[in-house]
Amino acid sequence: MRLLKSNKPSYCLLFVALFLLCSSLNTGYGAEFSAEVSQLESVHQGDSYALSAGVIYHLSDKAKRALQNGVPLFWDLHFKIQQHRDLFWNITLLDDVIRYRIQYHALLNMYRVRNETNGEITSFSTLSAALESMSTVTYYPTLKSADINPQNHYICYVKVDFDRDVLPLPLRPIAYVDPQWYLSSDWTLWPLKK
């Protein structure tokens, strides 16, 4: 499997501004702890297309400690399919988000993963199991076959975005400048298999 990594800048203006202000502190830029899209596959099933993706989450010590102390963490798994055009902007055909929340429950000594998109809750006795449950998306339905023109070229984008804006207030200023809190991935591109 061949993966294309994009180096598009982050859309988070806030981060950019604070990055400029605190560039000296942000030299690592979170590469060590950023999530990684390890697998991306498009499947044509019947009259529809589906995406399967695998994500590897690398939690920093600070993130683990925060989680252990009851701080819930949120990731957004972005799916995007665009029709490529040479002369104009690409046309976005799909832009979906699956939002995950992971939180430690001290009473049961378990990690609870909640899919905020569909409300599904799953509890795990270990962190790795909980992260594992968030790491795989299988046959995520995307477009109908009728929406795809075989003559055109389509690109799938997948990205995991760690949401720092829902961290507790005291953590946010630090999270914007501390590379240990940069837990997002870059966009991963993959041509849609027709």
Binding site: N69, G70, V71, H105, A106, L107, L169, P170, L171
Partner: peptide
């Protein structure tokens, strides 16, 4: 049990965020 857990987690979180809270304020 949930109430006890909530209080414990809240306290735990606040304790964890103590330095961050100081820094933030």
């Amino acid at each position: 049990a949930d109430s006890v857990e909530f209080a414990f987690v809240r306290y735990q979180e606040m304790n964890y965020l103590r330095n961050s809270l100081k820094l933030s304020f």
